[in-house]
Design a binder for these strands. Structure first.
Lengths: 205, 205
DNA sequence: CTTAACTCGTACATGTGTGTTCGAGTTAAG
DNA sequence: CTTAACTCGAACACACATGTACGAGTTAAG
């Protein structure tokens, strides 16, 4: 048969015949390479991704039947990664202001990367599916904002949804600065923290 | 000879033989259609643009030898349009805070559209050229920020360059909200104004 | 060692975008 | 009216991305 049997979609395989170790390694390399490339450039081609993963293009297709499949997998991995980080930094209790500062300081690069992948997903996946995945980490941050508004620590004269939007927009702007080499990650993180705290503070305080 | 003599590049023709009226009209239609389409989607194809302008694809190429040429022309037009609006709303004297508020209130859609075109230009034009054009309206806003910082009306603990970046990022976020139909232009402008004023106010005031 | 899984270069089919050519028809300008 | 400018559909050449098929070589696993 072909270059590989391609039994299941590299991800949710049941219990069947075990996968060989080198295949496992290659799949991991592909996912990390694709995450990096797609976050930087949502139009990165399958050829680029294969090369970056140190793998032949055919091998890539052996594990991921289509670009859509690959992006789906990458997005799912990035989301579960993001969610883990967010839950640690900003759990559902404790002072919202501190939680938010911690969240920005420790995981803004992760969230920014998620934003880049989101753009890639928007182009390759059906809108409904993207929206569904999008809601998870976005909703988490929004809950934190709402909690802070209700507790009086964040300004409440702006819709929480809009605040989340601005947070992501600035996250992305900071990421671009770093990627363009205009600032180090530390500088960008610092600017981000000071900018966002000004954004959240209530206007009269 | 071909469908048209294509003597010069539709733009900087000297004095030679006059251009016919219908050609002039079509060129104008192409530029406005391209401006609209490219601002919304930087990947809009030449076919799309021709159709939106109500013109055959061949006619488009008769006036603009390449996609690069078209984008160059569109970008130049958008910049001169933006510059005009900015100079009226935010001249180089007068209270910076008021000038800034006026600037946002009256021409944020124009500036946002310019941002979209900038993205299209970034993909089609050499980086050096984009940067050169980019500096004009960007520098204008930056001068205003610096002036406000020196006058004490804006917070000075953030680099003016970063402030400009955040302004454009939020401008774009607001534009997306409108385009996605989540808010009206009025709502978005209002949110923008309140968000940005919080960003510029000095932290202790 | 033997076998099945896996890798990978080459090549092909298909689709899409760019830019050009041809030729016939239309329209503004003198 | 006459002419040169202009428009435009159809077709072509080219480049590039996706996805598939083949066949030979390599490697993990028993």
């Amino acid at each position: 048969m072909g270059p590989s049997t391609r039994r299941e979609a590299a991800e949710g395989r049941a219990g069947g015949p075990r996968r060989r170790a080198d295949a496992e390694r290659n799949i991991a390399a592909i996912v990390t390479a694709a995450t990096d490339l797609l976050a930087r450039d949502p139009d990165a081609s399958m050829t680029d991704i294969a090369r970056a993963a140190g793998v032949g293009r055919v091998t890539l297709y052996a594990h991921f039947p289509s670009r859509e499949d690959l992006i789906r997998t990458v997005l799912a991995a990035a989301i579960s990664h993001s969610m883990g980080a967010v839950e640690v930094a900003a759990p559902d209790e404790g002072p919202p202001a501190e939680a938010f500062a911690r969240l920005i300081r420790t995981c803004w690069p992760i969230l920014d990367r998620f934003g880049g992948l989101h753009e890639a997903a928007r182009r390759a996946l059906p809108a409904e599916e993207v929206r569904r995945h999008h809601d998870l980490p976005m909703g988490r941050v929004e809950r934190l904002i709402v909690r802070g508004q209700e507790a009086g620590s964040f300004r409440a004269d702006l819709p929480a949804e809009w605040v989340v939007t601005t947070v992501y927009a600035l996250l992305h702007a900071a990421g671009d600065e770093v990627q363009a080499g205009r600032r180090t990650a530390e500088e960008a993180g610092d600017l981000l923290e000071r900018t966002l705290s000004a954004l959240l503070r209530t206007p009269g305080a």
